[in-house]
Each structure stands twice: as structure tokens, then as C-alpha cells.
Simulated scan of single mutants.
Amino acid sequence: MSTVQGAGVVVTGAGGGIGAAIARRFAAEGARVVVNDLDGGRVRALAEEIGGTVVAGDASVVVDAAREALGGRIDVFCANAGLASGGDAFAEEDVWARAWDVNVMAHVRAAKALLPEWLERGSGRFVSTASAAGLLTMIGAAPYSVTKHGAVAFAEWLSLTYRHRGVQVHSICPQGVRTDMLSNAGSAGDLVLAPTAIEPEAVADALFEAMAEDRFMVLPHPEVAGYYRHRASDPDQWIGNMNRLQQKWEGARA
């Protein structure tokens, strides 16, 4: 797909932040956009602004309603809805379960509903909003880090399994982005993410650059590539550095 002009696009979690920025960018490029949020009221103004359509409800069951709203065809699905779950290994099991359901299984369910149509016609694009935490891990946020690793892994599996059959996949892995999620990240977010935080529109720009280059990994913070190489080349040193960051955070909270 060399252009998104006229394409049917779905963006989940479009009530603000990255999702809203992605929806605006697709609409500006001429796509027909369905915006989704658990609360339809959060996306109604955005839909009016961009000439899009609202489909409310849980992101994991949006495909059928969005397909109908787009006249029977979804070309691009942006699995953007996410849950910022803090906590450590002692977090309650319902926190872990909810993070897993929103950050991973919603992507799995959407792909399961989309793939038969995409494979039959030989084209489709799946965009997974993950996080640099899915590549590097985030202090103070075990459920979030673990499930974002899962989101990256599932996107990678989709790409390596179906790329030759016309399915294009992109995994977006930003660090801090100036959204409500960052505002609610607490002292760990202030320490690690806030100093280099970017605007949501920069994430949308990075996605469109990756789409133009047919590139799987979308890194709105380019420095993450260097961190990822360091982590892979010397895991013990990487974990040691992250542990020192953990100690700094603990000291600041003491």
C-alpha cells in the first residue's frame, strides 16, 4: 500500500495522546478513520474533527463493528489501546490479568479477526503500539514491562509469519510521550521518561516514516536502538546499570 488515501483505518485507544495523533495523521493523509475508545464520548469530538466514525467499546472486540462502519474492509489496524500498570512482583493477580488482556490479548484477538480477510486478498497492515519498556524494561512497572514485551513479541511473530503473504507489521516503541499515561507514571516516570519526553505527533511522524520504508521497528526516540544493542551485547552490564537506576529511584522516594 503506497498511499493511505481512501484506506480504511482503525485506531483503538484514540481518546487522546498517541492514538488521537495517529488518527489525525491518517485522516490528514486521506484515510477513512474509525476511532475507538472504551468510552465513546472521549472520541466523539475527535471523530467530528477528522470526519471519522466512532466505534465505542473494548478494543479487543472492535473489528466487526469497525469493518461494518468502513463498508466491509479494514486496511490498517492500529492496536494502540494500552494500560499503564505499575507495581512489582507482588502486584495483585487482577492487575497482571488486566494488563495482559489489554496490552497483549487485545492484539491477538484483533489479529485473529483480521487475518483471514488480509490473507485472502494479500494485503493488510497491523500497527502495534508497544513501548521502549517492551524492549528495555521499566523500573517500578512489572506488569506493564512484561506485557509490553509480549506485545513486541506478538508483533514480531506476526511479521515473520505473514510478511511474505502481504501483511505488514509495525511495532511502535517510544520512551516518554507527553500524554496522560506519562502524567500518571509517578516518580519513576519523572526520573526515567520525562527528561526526553516527546509530543504524540512525533510518534505519528515516526510511524509514517516506518510505513514509507516498510520498517518493522518504529523508534520515535532513536537512542533506544543503542540501548537495545547494549542490552543484547552485555545483558549483565545492562541489568547492573538498570539496578543502579532502581536504587537511585528508591533513594529519591526514601
Rank of each mutant, 00 (worst) to 15 (best):
Q5E: 08
A7K: 15
A7M: 14
V10N: 01
V11S: 03
G17D: 05
I18V: 12
G19V: 00
A20Q: 09
A23Y: 07
R24E: 10
F26G: 06
F26S: 01
A28E: 14
G30N: 09
V34G: 03
D37A: 11
G52A: 07
G57D: 08
V61I: 10
D64G: 14
A65E: 06
R67F: 03
R67C: 11
E68K: 14
G71P: 10
I74A: 03
D75Y: 07
A79M: 12
N80T: 04
G87I: 05
D88L: 12
A89F: 15
F90P: 02
A91V: 04
E92D: 15
A99Q: 03
A106L: 15
A111T: 06
A111R: 01
P116F: 07
F126G: 05
S128Y: 06
A133T: 01
I139M: 14
Y144H: 14
Y144N: 10
T147K: 04
A151I: 08
A151P: 05
A151R: 09
V152L: 13
A153F: 03
F154T: 12
E156A: 14
L160M: 08
G166L: 09
Q168W: 06
H170D: 10
I172L: 01
G176T: 09
R178D: 15
D180P: 08
D180N: 13
D180C: 01
L182Q: 10
N184R: 13
A185R: 04
G186H: 04
L191I: 10
A194I: 06
I198R: 06
I198G: 01
E199I: 11
A204T: 01
A204F: 02
A210S: 11
A210Q: 10
A210M: 02
M211K: 11
E213C: 06
V218D: 09
V224Q: 08
Y227E: 10
A232G: 12
S233V: 05
D236I: 15
I239F: 06
G240L: 00
G240I: 01
Q246K: 07
Q247N: 11
K248G: 02
E250R: 13
E250F: 12
